[in-house]
Every structure is written in C-alpha cells, then in structure tokens.
C-alpha cells in the first residue's frame, strides 16, 4: 500500500529523515514507533503530501505522492498531531464540510456522515459545538474526519496522546475496528498500544529506520534464548548444578523472595526447556508454586534499538 524509498528531509541545520525506507502492507495495522523528535510526524506529513521530501520517493498504491498528488488525494485520510477541528462548528456540520471538500458526491455525504457518526460513537454529541466537547470526543471527531470520505489508507499521528485511560481504550477499539478493510499506519510512543494493535512495526530513531517488518519476527530476532522463571519453596546450589549438567540449561540464577525462591533458567536459542524444568521440579519435590516463560517485550526492544543503537 505504501512504499517509501530513501526518504530524506533536511531542515536548515537538521537532518530530520535520513534515507528512510519501509513498506506498509495493504490491509495491515502498521505501528510507527519512535521517541519524540525521531521523525515520525515528518514522515507522515511527507506521505500525505503536506510537505515535500528533500530527496527520496513515496508511493501509495504505486502512485508517486509528489508527482501524482491528485491520484492519491482521495485514498488517504490523515489525522495530524494537532487535531484539525473548527471549534465554532458542530460535529455534523464539520463532518459534512470535510466530506464535501474531499470529493464525496453530494448524494452520498449524508449516508457517509451518518455511518461515521455511528461507528465513531458520536451519536450523543453530533449536534454539539466542537469547542464544547471533551478531549476524548474531540479526538473521536478528528478520527471521524479521516474516515468520512472512505479512504483506503488511514494515517494517524499519535491519536491517543493526552487522553484519559477510558478514552484511550475507546480510540484503540475504534482503530482496531478499521482493520481488514483499510490499511492503517499509526504512530505512537506508547509501546503497549502498538503491541496490542499492530501486525507490523517500524521503529525510527534520529531520523533513521532501526527495524521494520512483522512484529513477531522482530521480537523473535531480539530473543537471545529462552528464560524460564520458577517460584519454588526449596532450592540450593546442588540442584542448580544438577540442572545444568542434565538439561539444555546454560545458566541458573536464583534469589530468595519472602518465603520462596525465584529461580531463572537460561537456555540457548530455539530450545524449549519448560517441560524438562517442570518435570525436574516436581520429581525433586521443590514445591513448585508457578512456572512462566519470560519473553522480551516491545519495550525492551524499543529501548535496545533507540538507546543502544
């Protein structure tokens, strides 16, 4: 759906984007991750044609955004970082206005706007002035304006920033409901959100792409080996040595926590030691309380990629 090739943007004295390249699959929800000032908004503004790149190209459905802007216009719905809302208009008026200036035929405007009001949960406030709405509802209206002309691609720049937890969940569900029919590219630095919503991710830092691709694959790439954590009542050094000698365990660490021990078993990559460990702990009567596998989260990867690299 989107193909970005060697995108570079240089502001006077600052290279905001340095040869950025990645792709967004059709029908996917693609998370665009990066710390503040990494170049997320700049990339999104270039994709939507709001600003031109210094060099490089962006294709949306094989149309070059810079050269064939007209072909791209109706395909994209964009929610910028600052919601573009007219505070003096009411919700219905505003959505009709946005639909009208986005090539929606007159006879379809009412139908589109009605549908969007329902799907974005704006039924309660459709006749209210936007300036009087809560931040959650304002963001919903802003999201509704990106969808009112039925675009195939929806680009959302930090759509949940500054919202209370309930509103965040509502907006997140709304984004989830877009999956399938539309391609969604959304930026965030809330990793939990990206983890919940996205199939694919791109991590950007200092204007350069750090990682891009399938979320599971990226997480897997960062997994150096399996870590199994067991809570047991009994544990000692002799047991640790026995485990290391008889199983595919490379290292064992343990600490005493209140009335039990927390034991960590480290194995090599592509080896599953859960079965061996659980069997051993039961057989040697270590009084097993719990057994879990520790996986690297997106937060670990994000930190590793954006800080370490």
């Amino acid at each position: 759906m989107i193909k970005i090739e060697s995108l570079t943007k240089i502001w006077p004295g600052i290279t905001a984007l340095d040869k950025v390249s990645f792709e967004v699959r059709q029908g996917s929800i693609h998370g665009f991750l990066g710390p503040n000032g990494a170049g997320k908004s700049t990339t999104m503004n270039i994709i939507t044609g709001l600003i031109p790149p210094t060099s490089g190209r962006v294709f949306i459905k094989n149309h070059d955004v810079c050269k064939e802007r007209k072909s791209v216009l109706g395909l994209v719905g964009f929610l910028p970082e600052h919601a573009p809302l007219y505070d003096n208009m009411n919700v219905l008026e505003y959505l009709k206005f946005v639909a009208s200036i986005n090539m929606v035929p007159s006879r379809e405007i009412k139908k589109n706007v009605d549908e969007i009001i329902h799907s974005c949960g704006l039924l309660k406030v459709f006749s209210r002035t936007i300036g009087n709405l809560s931040k959650g509802f304002r963001q919903r209206v802003a999201l509704a304006q990106t969808l009112v002309h039925s675009p195939e691609l929806v680009i959302l720049d930090e759509p949940t920033v500054g919202l209370d937890p309930n509103s965040v969940i509502e907006i997140r569900n709304l984004i989830k409901s877009l999956a399938g029919g539309r391609t969604v590219l959304f930026s965030s630095h809330t990793l939990h959100e990206v983890d919940l919503l996205c199939d694919d991710i791109t991590i950007i830092g200092n204007g350069r792409i750090m990682r891009s691709g399938n979320k599971k694959k990226i997480i897997n790439d960062f997994q150096t080996g399996q870590v199994v954590v067991a809570d047991v009542k009994k544990w000692n050094d002799a047991m640790a040595t026995e485990v290391k000698l008889n199983m595919s365990v490379e290292r064992v660490e343990y600490v005493r926590k209140n009335d039990h021990y927390v034991v960590k078993f480290f194995s090599g990559k592509d080896v599953d030691i859960r079965h061996q460990i659980s069997k051993y702990l039961v057989e040697c009567e270590a009084d097993l309380l719990s057994l879990t596998e520790e996986r690297p989260g997106l937060e670990d990867i994000f930190q590793k990629v954006t800080v370490d690299e």
Binding site: L73, F78, H82, N102
Partner: peptide, 13 residues
C-alpha cells in the same frame, strides 16, 4: 494557528 489549514491542504481544494 488552529492547524485546520492542514485539513484544507490535504483536501481536494
């Protein structure tokens, strides 16, 4: 100031 100019720029206008 209200950032609504972006709405006009990415519209068909």
């Amino acid at each position: 100031k209200a950032h609504t100019i972006e709405l006009l720029f990415i519209s068909n206008l």
